[in-house]
Design a protein around this nucleic acid. Sequence first.
DNA 1: CTGAAAGCGCTTACAG
DNA 2: CTGAAAGCGCTTACAG
Lengths: 319, 319
Amino acid sequence: MSHALNGKGIVRQETIDRIEQIAAEVGYRPSPIARGLQNSKLGLLALVIRPFHSLDTFLPEGVDYFLRTAGAASLAAMEHGYSMMLIDDPTKPGVPFSALAADAYIVTEPFENDPVLTMLSEQRIPFVCVGEDPARRGQFLAIEEHADTQTEMMLAHLSDAGANRIALVTGTDRNDWNLASQTAIVRWSESRNLRPLVMSVPEAEGERVGDAVMDEFFSGDPAEHPDAIYCLTGRHAAGVTAAALRRGLRIPQDLMVAAGSGSLQNQTSTPTVTTLDLKPEAIAQFAVEIAVKLAEGQRVKGPLVTPRATLNLRQSTAR
Amino acid sequence: MSHALNGKGIVRQETIDRIEQIAAEVGYRPSPIARGLQNSKLGLLALVIRPFHSLDTFLPEGVDYFLRTAGAASLAAMEHGYSMMLIDDPTKPGVPFSALAADAYIVTEPFENDPVLTMLSEQRIPFVCVGEDPARRGQFLAIEEHADTQTEMMLAHLSDAGANRIALVTGTDRNDWNLASQTAIVRWSESRNLRPLVMSVPEAEGERVGDAVMDEFFSGDPAEHPDAIYCLTGRHAAGVTAAALRRGLRIPQDLMVAAGSGSLQNQTSTPTVTTLDLKPEAIAQFAVEIAVKLAEGQRVKGPLVTPRATLNLRQSTAR
DNA sequence: CTGAAAGCGCTTACAG
DNA sequence: CTGAAAGCGCTTACAG
């Protein structure tokens, strides 16, 4: 009898003992699935890391943001009594049952008109985004990233450090981070009557984009050459730094380089590279907190504010 | 009728269409839990990263091994049509149903007499270890790590590079990696009539152990001072390198330093540090393959051989 | 205090 | 071709 095992009803100790013994003997183990069936909850959260789609490898070298997110989220989930599942796209045909069985979803960096958000919202599955769907701002519960403010912060720093002409290198994924950063530099440039210098290169290309970026910005009119390049990803920044050095430019004297999201790589390279610390652990913990509330049927209202990114000043921008 | 929706039986197209329409209208979504109940399978794998227990933070700086493992495992699982759950200890009281609902488990670096393995095997839940339970070798299905061979490979390299007296710094977790490495250096030292120089310091201390390690090995009889220190973790190696430098030792001339598991940190530090590449991605993929077989009821027999670790030679051991 | 029954939301034989 | 029934393995009221 289940009362004995789960200690719910009032059962004689003797009976409990006897039943527990037998249970142990036959190696009885209650099916977590059958249990979950009652309240249709498994105690499962899912982290959908959308940009996995665009990364050719999971190698975290220079892209530790997502792995730090995943790790912190898993740990935070456990602390709330949930498990965390890592998936990339639950809308793909042939996904396992489990990919749809989470009590709530966290979607990091959704794409423009992301089908994952569409599916989740159509099926009334609770979810929270980290970064908005750029095409549907305000439509879904989201933790705001403030990519615009972050960009402004970095531009202000570079400007203070003596840069006059700042170029931006973003990734090609159409997510909030890439798009809002672009908007921010365009606005910033135009307010100074400058033609915005922007280039988008695939995230997955990593360090390999260095020469292409240098070619793009340093081939035309010398008056238009940047004296600072802000790359959103640490790997792009590393590639640009290396390419600039190869071309005989001194960093930071001739060219400053900074990254919007760094890894240890940027802290130990020569020169070390200025980065933003996006606080992925804090964001992940916050997202888990919200997902747990959603999973438990609570209403959560925005705006959801995260800890601000901070600037890690390093040699590459220290003139 | 379910036949219409899942396309199993023979149903008129017309009926299918009608039912699908209604389903869409009412926002019907089949419960993955109820579905899973039939064959008591959810398409869920679990990765139990035991050393999480000992790490004070999930920050991957210098410990990217586990995160790389987690990432690669998640991706590999998806490719096999499974989801991957990240948990640290399913034996803890109060774990969610889901933590026990996986079809198969991968346990990385189990401890000595690890209760997780005990539970899993008692409950007849299929699992595969990465690294053996040091107290129960051969008892459970395990992917062998060859920590002993790895240690020998590193010792041979250091020896070739000119080291005469090599010290080993391990973590304090009682897992295969730490223990087998210790055994290997003891054997190696004794065969040369040398007193083994071994020290164990907590994994979680990371770079902070530098001075303690230097004190330990450089305080006594100068004849016993090592001219090479092999740290199993990259963070320990980084700490030792820094401490040695601070004391005026030149690396590698006066002291060589190497790590058994490195991260990007060791590739970009000054000097760069020689490490083993343990191939976590390959191991994770292999583990997932096995877990999938187990989940599907196939028998898997050992010995399970992994790709060999390779040596990344860097400045810290280049005399 | 304890057993038998109903129900969680599906799927899969089994009648009509 | 389609509907009604049984069953997956539990939990939770509900009788005895």
